[in-house]
């Protein structure tokens, strides 16, 4: 199984000298293809910073980031931009869909920006929407979609094409529990197709969908759980 994301001894400080704030302190995280890892912690624990560093949107103060075997520190900014367009999908709490584009156009946009022909990008966009049960919403604009549907479109956009790493920041932020569950099911589906996913959240319900949970506190990784799926301590006949 190949390693998609590797974070080694990642530290991040903002400011200098006495005013420096250490947002992350020597955090390690590795995610293989097909795996879903949750990073859990209260606000201010450094989890969003960890995600932006994993997504190459921000550079660590020290430590190494490898995505699909390539080290970010040795990449040019053009290479990093290409990696962001082709390999990484982002899902944010507030969906970040472009209001003037239809669902299908929003989903195919990253491919078009990467130079894929409009026709091919459109077909790939439709395929991603179909996989997530949104084929009938393809021509709708974001303001014609419900919150749950908008987030599903955002997830379709994050996995369109050959993306290998899905990074989600509180992906079910304002959604109700049914829609949150649908969002996690989709991320899990993407993982079954080989995508490696990292979800950062303060919500244990979301984190419990993950294979592994990393706990952050004050920028440090304080603990993790990685239960063996065949091992259950539930005292029920079904377990």
């Amino acid at each position: 199984m190949s390693r998609v994301l590797e974070l080694r001894d990642i530290s991040k400080s903002y400011g200098e000298g006495a005013n420096a704030v250490r947002a992350l302190d020597e955090v390690n995280l590795s995610v293989d293809e097909g795996h879903l890892v949750a990073v859990m912690g209260p606000s201010g624990s450094g989890k969003s910073t960890l995600l932006t560093i994993a997504g190459s949107l921000e550079a660590p103060t020290s430590g190494e980031v490898q995505i699909a075997g390539a080290s970010l520190s040795s990449m040019s900014s053009n290479d990093k931009a290409r990696l962001r367009r082709r390999t990484i999908g982002y899902v944010f709490q507030d969906f970040n869909l472009l209001p003037g584009l239809t669902a299908a156009e929003n989903v195919s946009l990253p491919l078009e920006l990467d130079g894929v022909s409009a026709r091919k990008a459109h077909l790939a966009g439709l395929a991603a929407l179909e996989q997530l049960g949104l084929a009938d919403r393809a021509e709708h604009y974001p303001d014609q979609l419900s919150g749950g549907e908008r987030q599903r479109v955002a997830i379709a956009r994050s996995v369109v094409g050959e993306r290998r790493l899905l990074l989600a920041d509180e992906p079910s932020g304002a959604l109700d529990s049914t829609n949150s569950e649908a969002v996690m099911r989709m991320i899990l589906e993407a993982c079954k197709r080989g995508v490696a996913a990292v979800v950062v959240t303060h919500d244990a319900h979301l984190a419990s969908w993950a294979d592994r949970v990393l706990f952050l506190r004050d920028g440090r990784s304080v603990d993790h759980v990685a239960p063996d799926p065949s091992d259950s301590s539930l005292a029920t006949p079904r377990a």
Binding site: M40, A204, H205, A207, S208, W209, A210, V213, F215, D223, H224, V225, P227, P229, S232, S233, L234, A239
Partner: peptide, 13 residues
């Protein structure tokens, strides 16, 4: 917290 989240993972499975 770790133990409870682990139990939640089992139920969510």
């Amino acid at each position: 917290r770790r133990q409870v989240v682990e139990l939640m993972q089992q139920w969510t499975r």
